[in-house]
């Protein structure tokens, strides 16, 4: 027996052995491609976005001036733009709260009461719509809420037209019909993001140990107390995890407001129109920093609340 017979013969074997005993090198090889892609394509793009937000548009020529300036940021504080930000953040907040309220009973039912046969069916009935086409879901609400559509028909049959007219006549939230009004935008946002809220809450609730609930009962906690002091705090990270999606998705959406809305812009629409027709990428970039900033704070706070374990 010579020493060489045990040595790897082919190149590929030698490379394999080399990598096997040097985990740092193999780690680097595994990480190289995804890391490069994300650093160049994603982080790189975000960096160019930041850089361009400090350029500005020349008022006379309509050309982008590649010099440092804060004028794009200054434009964010015009009343019209403040209005847009308030409208969008307000909608995101209301949609998130409503989604949490509607999602909780269902998630609670799934986690605690659904029989082993029923649970996968419930799960599927949320997962299928979640992954179903986003645009088709928006479109279906255009059909449902149309002036001559289903909801109007039901309201008409129930002779509640006066109530609908009163609702649509309200300032701020009303409009010519449900399918062209902030109420419509709210309903569609609530619908399309609701599954994102249900699943993390259900996951968090499933992790609450049965023994803990029983212990609370044994120690004299009535169901209401157990719910408030045991279940709710443990489900909270799930609610926060869900709210990251509902909040962020609402902040960055321009589809629903342009399909269901009137001329009052949301952040997404403003960004889209600045970069498109007027070619004002610096202003669009500066405007994008608002949802990024809001989400940055939100993500940081959620991380501290332990929400990432529930994702």
């Amino acid at each position: 027996m010579t020493a060489t017979s045990a040595a790897p013969r082919t190149l590929i074997q030698r490379v394999s052995n080399y990598l096997y005993v040097r985990p740092r090198v193999s780690l680097l090889m595994l990480l190289a491609l995804p890391l490069l892609w994300f650093l160049i394509v994603y982080i790189g793009s975000l960096a160019t976005l930041m850089v361009q937000s400090f350029f500005h548009l020349d008022g006379f020529t309509g050309q982008v001036v590649r010099q440092f300036s804060l004028s794009s940021y200054a434009q964010l504080f015009t009343p019209a733009n403040v209005d847009i930000v308030q409208r969008t953040a307000g909608m995101a907040g209301v949609v998130t709260l409503s989604a949490a309220l509607i999602a909780f009973p269902l998630a609670y039912f799934m986690a605690r009461y659904a029989s082993p046969r029923m649970r996968p069916l419930l799960y599927l009935s949320i997962t299928l719509p979640l992954w179903s086409s986003y645009l088709v879901k928006v479109y279906s609400w255009k059909l449902i809420l149309a002036k001559e559509g289903m909801v109007s028909w039901v309201i008409n049959t129930l002779r509640l037209d006066a109530a609908l007219d009163w609702l649509l006549g309200l300032p701020e939230i009303g409009g010519p019909s449900l399918s062209i009004s902030p109420i419509g935008i709210y309903l569609v946002f609530l619908y399309v993001w609701l599954p994102y809220m249900i699943l993390p809450i259900a996951t968090a609730l499933e992790r609450v140990p049965k023994s803990l609930i029983e212990a609370s009962g044994d120690l004299g906690g009535r169901p209401g107390v157990t719910f408030r002091r045991i279940i709710l705090p443990l489900a909270f990270p799930g609610v926060v995890a869900g709210s990251i999606f509902t909040f962020s998705l609402t902040l960055g959406d321009f589809i629903v407001p342009s399909v269901m809305g009137n001329s009052s812009y949301f952040i997404g629409q403003a960004v889209l129109s600045h970069q498109g027709t007027s070619g004002n990428i610096p202003l669009a970039a500066a405007m994008t920093t608002i949802p990024m900033l809001i989400m940055g704070i939100y993500l940081y706070a959620s991380r501290r609340a332990g929400a990432f374990d529930a994702l």
Binding site: G44, D253, F254, G268, V271, I281, T288
Partner: peptide, 27 residues
């Protein structure tokens, strides 16, 4: 790294969109 991979869907969709758009434009 997990956080970075999650960012494109955790940040609002327009952020990824306008970031790529501005990078393509700049170069």
């Amino acid at each position: 790294i997990s956080f970075m991979l999650l960012l494109p869907i955790a940040l609002p969709g327009i952020v990824t969109g306008i970031a790529l758009r501005s990078a393509f434009g700049l170069f």
